[in-house]
């Protein structure tokens, strides 16, 4: 046996997945790009007209900005709520960890549509929160919770939470417990230890979680649309509208490409910035 034949066999192992990706990810993307490069709906005139149209219109750029801002806020809320949860998980006994992990991954085991409808029920005019506040007489009329940007952020943060919590748990449980104990024995209190030792060393996990949540939130069509309602326009719904309702495939494809590139650029930038933090990448 020589090296080249072993190399060949490894290639054979990669072949099924490679073919799958080529057929169902790469080819559709190429097709999408090809469609987007037509100036008319009849695919007769080749050109970059759709991109110029998108980038030249303030409304379109506003939708893009709204979408990215929504993803960023979702990411921040998920991090804020997810980190303490992940930290609690690592401190819990193994018996409690089994219960907690079930609760943490539960959102992944239910359909996005079901989870989204649960939020509609909670936030609606006659929803759980409004009924409760009315019964307590804290408010006189139902307040508008559903169809607000804040509602979308909260619902998305909950739905994408496992994507944030699991990488952080992974990073925290890989940490040497002696580091925490060394910090305590040097006279640092619990908060100082958390802030100066535990937190910085779990940065790679936080980074991975943030990127996953950001990318997922930017393209969460169902939740954005159902919790956000018709008035709030985000990129995924905009694509749907242009493609299905207006039958303008070239423009829809261009929007999709713009969203794809925008998310990729941000994810890459954040990743590079995060990895350049001294010491962390090698921790």
């Amino acid at each position: 046996m020589n090296g080249s034949s072993r190399f060949l066999r490894r290639w054979q192992l990669l072949l099924p997945l490679g073919l799958f990706f080529f057929t169902f990810v790469f080819l559709p993307l190429v097709l999408l790009g090809y469609i987007s490069l037509h100036n008319d709906m009849g695919f007769k005139e080749f050109g970059t007209g759709q991109y110029l149209k998108f980038l030249g219109d303030g409304f379109n750029l506003g939708v893009l900005g709204q979408t990215l801002w929504l993803a960023a806020r979702t990411m921040m809320l998920a991090l804020l709520l997810g980190y303490p949860l992940a930290y609690c998980f690592t401190l819990a006994s193994s018996k409690w960890q089994r219960v907690l992990i079930l609760i943490i991954v539960l959102p992944l085991l239910t359909s996005a549509v079901v989870r989204t409808f649960a939020w509609v029920v909670i936030l609606g005019r006659q929803g759980i929160i409004n009924s409760l506040l009315l019964n307590l007489a804290w408010i006189e009329a139902p307040i508008k919770l559903l169809y607000t940007p804040a509602a979308v952020v909260v619902a998305l943060a909950q739905i994408e939470m496992p994507l944030m919590v699991l990488p952080i748990i992974n990073a925290l449980s890989k940490q040497d417990p002696n580091l925490r104990e060394a910090s305590l024995s040097l006279g640092a209190g619990r908060w100082r230890t958390l802030l100066l030792v535990t937190l910085p060393l779990s940065l790679p996990g936080m980074l991975a979680g943030c990127l996953l949540v950001f990318a997922a939130a930017a393209s969460a069509f169902v939740t954005q649309t159902l919790v956000g309602g018709g008035q709030l326009m985000f990129m995924p719904f905009y694509i749907y509208q242009q493609a299905i309702q207006s039958n303008n495939y070239p423009f829809a494809a261009a929007i999709a490409m713009v969203l794809l590139v925008a998310v990729l650029v941000i994810v890459t930038l954040v990743n590079v910035a995060g990895r350049s933090i001294k010491g962390v990448a090698h921790a």
Partner: peptide
């Protein structure tokens, strides 16, 4: 294992 803080 010395438990030195690797990021410092």
């Amino acid at each position: 294992n010395y438990a030195l803080f690797p990021h410092m």
